[in-house]
Amino acid sequence: MDDIAVLIPCYNESKTIEKVITDFKNALPDAVIYVYDNNSSDGTDEIARKAGAVVRYEHMQGKGNVIRRMFREIDARCYIMTDGDDTYPAEYAPSMVKKVLERNVDMVVGDRLSSTYFTENKRPFHNFGNSLVRGSINVLFKNDIKDIMTGYRAFSYEFVKTFPVLSKGFEIETEMSIHAVDKNMFIENEIIEYRDRPDGSVSKLNTYSDGFKVLMTIAKLYRTYKPLGFFGIVSLVLAALSVGFFIPIFVDYARTGVVEKIPTLIACGFTMIAALQSVFSGLILHTMLQKNRQDFEKYLNEVNDKKREKLSK
Results as ranks from 00 to 15, higher is better:
D196G: 08
P89Q: 06
I4R: 08
E13L: 14
L101N: 11
A274Q: 06
D106K: 01
S114D: 08
L276C: 09
S278F: 08
L113V: 12
H286K: 15
E297T: 01
F280A: 01
D199C: 02
R197H: 04
P89L: 06
Y79V: 11
D75P: 00
I284G: 03
F125V: 10
Q61S: 05
E297W: 01
E173S: 10
T162W: 01
F159E: 01
N143Y: 13
I187D: 12
R308E: 14
G110M: 13
I33G: 12
C268G: 05
Y152G: 09
G257W: 10
E171W: 00
T217S: 12
F128A: 14
R56L: 12
T217D: 05
L289H: 13
Y225G: 09
T119M: 05
H126F: 03
L132Y: 13
S278H: 04
G282N: 10
I33H: 08
A254L: 15
V258S: 04
F250A: 15
D45W: 05
M185N: 02
N39D: 06
I284F: 13
D182I: 03
F128H: 09
K168A: 04
V109Y: 06
G64M: 02
G84D: 08
E120S: 14
Y194D: 02
I284E: 12
R223K: 15
E102V: 06
S278Q: 07
K183P: 00
L101T: 11
G151E: 03
V20G: 10
S41F: 01
G43V: 05
L236Q: 10
R112E: 06
I187T: 11
I192H: 08
Y79E: 09
A154V: 09
I266V: 15
D30C: 04
A154T: 03
T116G: 02
E158M: 00
I137W: 05
D85T: 14
V243K: 05
K146A: 15
A31P: 10
T16N: 07
R112A: 09
F128L: 15
R68P: 05
T207M: 10
D75F: 04
Y88Q: 09
A275I: 04
F280S: 12
L221Q: 13
V251Q: 14
A53L: 11
R255Y: 06
K291P: 00
A27W: 07
I67S: 01
G43A: 05
N38F: 13
I8V: 15
S235H: 07
L215R: 04
G244Y: 00
G257F: 09
S201I: 04
A180E: 07
D305C: 03
N39E: 07
Q277W: 11
M1Y: 01
F212L: 13
S40W: 05
L265S: 13
K98T: 13
I266A: 13
D210W: 02
A274I: 03
G244D: 02
A5D: 12
V243T: 03
L238F: 02
R293K: 14
G135M: 11
L285V: 08
I233T: 13
P124S: 11
D295P: 00
R123L: 01
H179P: 00
Y222I: 04
V108F: 06
M81N: 11
I266Y: 09
N184V: 02
L300N: 08
T217W: 03
V100G: 08
K99F: 00
K99Q: 10
N104D: 13
K122T: 10
R112Y: 06
Y11H: 14
P227W: 06
D45S: 14
N26R: 12
T22M: 08
V35C: 11
N138G: 09
A51K: 06
